[in-house]
Design a protein around this nucleic acid. Structure first.
Lengths: 126, 126
DNA sequence: TCAATTGTTACTATCAGAGTTTCAATTGTG
DNA sequence: CACAATTGAAACTCTGATAGTAACAATTGA
């Protein structure tokens, strides 16, 4: 793929992206590395290296990105040690896991319905 | 309500609750204060003070609790300053707000379907 | 050979969340 | 009344996660 950074005219360097959204090039590169491993973007190294989308924007959902960057779950469930004498303490974690599993599914299902193309279209509209 | 800490035989002090779930009494009190303001629990001060549910467990949903404790939104949207020259930078925030609004609704709708009684029943079952 | 860029690591800075401490106010109880 | 136990709240500290900063090897076009 090297040597073909030009295969997508929207290729951008990490520095360009960083300036655009007011963050650091390093953060962009670390994030791109995750997206790249997930197959959402492609990169080329060396002089004239850059990043670009690996698929069409319509084929990338927010769920893809959510999973790629290992975003936190809808809820963080405590990791406190249990108090052996307390029935609640010993079982609450499992109960919450089961209960929130459906909430997590609802969240992911919702994210799956939104694509990058949707976001872009929305920006154009405003 | 003072003097009637006994109006619910399940009344517990913050110290008892803290020991039960391995946290600090102070944290329990800060959390109970939020739940109390939301009308989910009641408390009594002074000697023999305590906390207890203000409603039946069946009438308290995880959404009630989620909102009461001001849990974070499903997603944190960046607060970086915009780069005036970048169309994306100037509009991405609004676009994400709109897109994730439906995800937030999905999450809250899911939470609304789970009550404290459900959690308790699940614990009993295991 | 040189310059520009990614990928990666180590370190630092910042912030939010929880822990700790303390104290005033409240209220049963002797 | 005096005392003890408790909530509510404030101030401060500790800790972990996240992002910023810096540095460098590896890559690659010119």
């Amino acid at each position: 793929m090297a040597g073909l950074g030009c295969c997508n005219e929207n290729a951008k360097t990490s520095t360009e992206l960083a300036q655009s959204v007011n963050t650091s090039a390093s953060f962009v590169r670390r994030t791109m590395a995750k997206l790249s491993k997930a197959g959402l973007v492609e990169t080329s190294k060396g002089k004239s290296g850059a990043c670009w989308l690996a698929k069409k924007a319509k084929q990338i959902t927010l769920l893809d990105i959510y999973q790629a960057v290992a975003a936190p779950k809808a809820f963080a469930i405590h990791a406190y040690p249990e108090s052996k004498r307390c029935e609640v303490s010993c079982n609450i974690k499992g109960a919450l896991d089961r209960a929130l599993d459906q909430t997590q599914k609802a969240l992911e299902s919702s994210l799956e319905k939104i694509t990058l193309a949707d976001i872009v279209a929305d920006i154009r509209k405003h």
